[in-house]
């Protein structure tokens, strides 16, 4: 059974100049179209955020179990699944964002990649390197490093939890029989 509570180190994806969360990160900034021919997930990790100013070295810094926090409209743009899979390849276990592009959301949920919509993301007292605990079912967040509870995120929907627990959309179909 996949865990309903995740713990991990946070990366807050901010603009290096303003220190503010970057909004509207599109799929070309996440995973540039120059690498679309890659089909093996293991090879996609090295290109994550490869076209996002200030974050090109993210694949070198990120580790297994990390959690990525982004601004609004994350993953807008094309329908490429690579933009979800590159994070799975790096072992990123959760993406939290103010909001997601519709197709990105669909792709992430279908592939069993946990994502949380976090309307209050701008007000959350977290910084890169903090350890956080996230309850996917309730949307509760706690900053373990500071000991503080944070404003709630939108909890997983039933559908999202069904697919996540099964593994992905196709595994869920098999579970239905």
């Amino acid at each position: 059974m996949k865990p309903g509570i995740l713990k991990g180190r946070i990366w807050v994806i901010t603009d290096p100049d303003t220190d503010k969360l970057i909004n509207n990160i599109d799929t070309d900034m996440i995973y540039h179209n120059a690498h679309l021919a890659v089909t093996e997930i293991e090879k996609m990790g090295q290109y994550a955020f490869g076209n996002l100013t200030g974050w090109k070295d993210f694949p070198k810094k990120a580790g297994e179990g990390d959690i990525v926090v982004c601004g609004t409209n994350f993953g807008s743009g094309s329908s490429r699944q690579h933009a979800v899979d590159c994070f799975r390849a790096l072992g990123v276990q959760l993406i939290i964002a103010g909001s997601f592009g519709a197709i990105y959301k669909r792709n992430a949920i279908n592939s069993g990649m946990p994502i949380l919509t976090y309307p209050d993301v701008d007000d959350a007292k977290i910084k890169s390197g903090d350890e956080v605990e996230v309850d996917l079912e309730k949307g509760k967040l706690k900053n373990i490093t500071t000991g503080e509870y944070l404003p709630n995120a939108d909890p997983f929907s039933i559908v999202q939890m069904d697919i996540y627990r099964a593994g992905d959309l196709f595994e869920y179909a098999k579970a239905l029989g």
Binding site: S79, R106, N110, L169, F170, A173, L176
Partner: peptide
């Protein structure tokens, strides 16, 4: 997309 429609065919 094609994954979604394959799932719809099946379920």
């Amino acid at each position: 997309g094609d994954s979604d429609i394959a799932f719809a065919f099946k379920t």
